[in-house]
Design a protein around this nucleic acid. Sequence first.
DNA 1: TATGAATGAGGCTTCATTCAT
DNA 2: TATGAATGAAGCCTCATTCAT
Lengths: 199, 199, 199, 199
Amino acid sequence: MDAQREGKFQRILDAAIEAFAESGFHHCQVNKIARLAGVADGTIYLYFKSKEDVLIRVFQERMGDFIAGVSRELSQCKTTEARLRTIVKTHFTYMEQNRSVAIVTQLELRQSDPRVRLPINSTVSDYFNLIEGVIQQGIQSGEVPKIDTRVARQMIFGSLDEATTDWVMARSPRTLTSGIEPMLALFEGALQVRKSETK
Amino acid sequence: MDAQREGKFQRILDAAIEAFAESGFHHCQVNKIARLAGVADGTIYLYFKSKEDVLIRVFQERMGDFIAGVSRELSQCKTTEARLRTIVKTHFTYMEQNRSVAIVTQLELRQSDPRVRLPINSTVSDYFNLIEGVIQQGIQSGEVPKIDTRVARQMIFGSLDEATTDWVMARSPRTLTSGIEPMLALFEGALQVRKSETK
Amino acid sequence: MDAQREGKFQRILDAAIEAFAESGFHHCQVNKIARLAGVADGTIYLYFKSKEDVLIRVFQERMGDFIAGVSRELSQCKTTEARLRTIVKTHFTYMEQNRSVAIVTQLELRQSDPRVRLPINSTVSDYFNLIEGVIQQGIQSGEVPKIDTRVARQMIFGSLDEATTDWVMARSPRTLTSGIEPMLALFEGALQVRKSETK
Amino acid sequence: MDAQREGKFQRILDAAIEAFAESGFHHCQVNKIARLAGVADGTIYLYFKSKEDVLIRVFQERMGDFIAGVSRELSQCKTTEARLRTIVKTHFTYMEQNRSVAIVTQLELRQSDPRVRLPINSTVSDYFNLIEGVIQQGIQSGEVPKIDTRVARQMIFGSLDEATTDWVMARSPRTLTSGIEPMLALFEGALQVRKSETK
DNA sequence: TATGAATGAGGCTTCATTCAT
DNA sequence: TATGAATGAAGCCTCATTCAT
């Protein structure tokens, strides 16, 4: 019964992602989400407070999973280099495999409406913390010189984000993942990562 | 007469920037722009095709000026290092001095609606070309090793963009310009800029 | 089994009275009645045809009891004076002791919707007949001069009704029953009731 | 220009009265009022805050006029008898000539919703004050014995109100004005009005 | 060229009612 | 008989745009 409820919740979420990605949040009608999810319009309001709430939850649920995934992978990395690779690789791979999520994330969520912004920001913060954590770890272990953590995070996240937007906009016909290595090289140069001389 | 027309055009543009920055594009009513500009609602439609057109023109006009400015400054730079500094400095300085423009740029313009996207993209492309030009120049002059120009541009623009968003969101209470030097250092590391051994 | 059914019927009725009194018929949701009655939404439809039907039955049941009570009391009165006193006293006392019923009666039942009006009117008519009967009895016994029965009834019922509305609206902080004697005096004056010269 | 605005305001008001009287407030759609008034749906919202606001203003405007009229007439009356006659006569005459207003007044305005109730009550209070004023004047001039003013007002207003409701409900096929004299006789009896022995 | 009153299409949301369990 | 999740029709209101002046 509760599994059924969870199933319908996920179905609406998936439908919303498709719908938002296709039409954009503002142009997408609730009734389209309902149709895609195979439920009645009113049913959506049994699971979500409002259309805006659907948008927020889409982000929280999907990015929450993504961030948890990155976090899990990171915990198994030994070096800063490996950690950076994990971040770039997971970011690009996830977005490439979830194009609609990427579209919603890169475009629809940049809402200045505070009702949308606030809940989203708090989720994004988790990702920021993850990235900043990697940098700090690098500094502490001596792999990375003492640099401004925030600025470094802005560079890393901004670069990943922009590459994703580029790809979403289909400006570049390339795959997103083909950018992993070149991007990584830039990051390593920027952070002056001392490659594990461990031996 | 034409100067008068131009004046009113600019007044509407400025009003729109304030209005969009304050309420967000979708929540801002045309009537608010008109009030701020000191004209009647209908007058706006003598200068712009639609509300969306106002948004597009805001970007084209203001970013057009900005890009022209950057371009002008760049032409006087001798080294890649100087060119990167020019880009970062001009970007941050401009945004800091035009907070409303920054808000509109960072948030409101991320519209998935193709009618808005397309004209915006073509303006942004000019900026991208500028940045990529700097990188290519660096490669040709040997100041920068042979790297993927697009990825490098994604990193540079993405970083500047994210830092600006961060500042707009007031996540960081710092000034935007205080990030110039640290960001520049990252870029130089990333691009492995050979500092002008020119003597 | 039938007693159980009756019990649940009454519980829904009581819940409806509270709910209607609190939120008003149109703003009160069926689901609120259900919650107050401790049953599921759907259960209400096993006992009532529709939400409107609940309103109608509330009136019929509660006012039916009330009218039966007045009628019973009246049958034991010997004089017109006593009968008028019974009506005023019972009316005010009942309403004062059943504030929620009073609220529903005075406000929520004034529906112009014919589906609600008609069944309610037929119940109210019973009360009107009771009052008109008292007047006619008075005329026949010579206690009251020959007057227009309908108009007299309008005055009596209208006065009681308005006093009750006044009290419900909390316009007057007084108790409702404190108006019994003054109101009675007015009625006796209006009907020129010859006080029982019976000895 | 302002006369034009006033004209449209009145046209919407009149349309609303017809519409509310015909369908009832809750069942009447805004679009019906618009059609009857010969304006677009949206135009109504240039003159009124909401559908509820239309209802409130209907009452305030029409009853305001009515009360002003009664007040004017009363000021020319010399005796309590004449004043009571003025009240009864004006009340019944007005309602009979404005059946739709009467329907709205008697049925649709009995809303328990406080947003509607409050503004209405304050208008009704003016009428109450008028009636109570007449009674007090009567007491002071010695035409009426010392009685409870509030209760007397409840009787007078309640009776008029109930007679009007009766007529609106078409329970009585008679005209409303035919009730003037009998009702007046009741009031004079109730208040024990000493007929002007003035000569 | 400028106005701003008027337009009217369009959409989110509510909630009485149903029905599979 | 009882449940309560699901339904989906229906309506108030907003606001970009027009057009008579």
